[in-house]
């Protein structure tokens, strides 16, 4: 049985290698001048006054794909919460606080607000410079966990009412859907960026619906990461199996 599997793997691998090698000569040259898709995407993003073409592709030209990616993250976090919940034969133990050196504790408390603001900055400037909802949301969620690193888990739990983050995760997903449906109600298409004025190029309020969709994604990602890390932290720090079970 094992040998059969190895043979199957070898045949599949050889086939894939042959196809990839055959495809290589057909690739455009590295760093060439002709970018048919890129040129069209840049023209479309300039028409909609979005300075960052990647944001325009993600949240305007291919906003439907982003909806799919967002639901993947949502479903993955939901799965983690279900899998890592407290089982019947487990109980919670209070974690003992750790002795953290004073400079480290101070550093964590100073960097926490800086990281939060940086996260919001990255979300808000998604349509202007590299970045956007996903990157900014992850940074903001990571910032909160400086409380665990610099103080202890109890301090993090006090500023992290989990129900609020679970609700805001779901609300953010709904907000993205509602922004898409608004296009349908206005008589165009789902997630079509035609409702809002495009604004002045290269300012914070440019790009039509792109900043709003970015904000929804930022909220979704930040809440999802906080919930995800909370389930992992619970398992690593608090939940214990009953003795003798």
């Amino acid at each position: 049985m094992n040998r059969l599997r190895l043979w199957l793997l070898a045949v599949g691998g050889a086939g894939l290698t042959a196809l990839l090698v055959a495809a290589c000569p057909g690739l455009p040259r590295f760093g060439g001048r002709s970018h048919p898709y890129g040129e069209r995407a840049v023209r479309a993003s300039l028409d909609r006054h979005t300075a960052n073409t990647v944001a325009s592709v993600n949240f305007d030209q291919r906003a439907y794909d982003t909806l799919g990616e967002m639901s993947i993250l949502f479903a993955a976090v939901l799965g983690c919460v279900v899998l890592l919940r407290q089982a019947r034969d487990e109980h919670r133990a209070r974690p003992e606080p750790a002795a953290v050196a004073r400079p480290v504790r101070r550093y964590a408390l100073i960097v926490l607000p800086v990281a939060l603001v940086t996260g919001l900055y990255v979300v808000a400037h998604g349509q202007l410079s590299p970045g956007g909802g996903f990157q900014g949301g992850v940074v903001a969620a990571t910032a909160l966990h400086l409380l665990y690193l610099g103080a202890d888990y109890g301090a993090l739990e006090r500023v992290r009412p989990l129900a609020v983050y679970e609700t805001s995760d779901a609300l953010a997903v709904c907000a993205y859907l509602v922004l898409g449906l608004a296009g349908v109600l206005a008589g165009t298409a789902f997630l079509a960026n035609t409702l809002l004025p495009y604004g002045t190029f290269n300012t914070l309020s440019s790009g039509g619906a792109v900043p709003l969709l970015n904000a929804a994604i930022g909220m979704e990602v930040a809440s999802a990461v906080v919930v995800l890390l909370a389930t992992f932290l619970d398992q690593a720090v608090e939940i214990e199996e009953k003795q003798g079970s």
């Binding site: 990647v54 590299p130 990157q135 990571t142 992992f232 932290l233 690593a236």
Partner: peptide, 26 residues
């Protein structure tokens, strides 16, 4: 591709190590 680089930095520098190390501790 700075957008992809930013995603990689945001996820790879603190979040992934934290998830892996918490699983290892557990």
């Amino acid at each position: 591709a700075p957008d992809v680089g930013l995603s990689q930095l945001a996820v790879g520098s603190a979040l992934t190590p934290l998830l892996i190390m918490l699983s290892v501790r557990r």
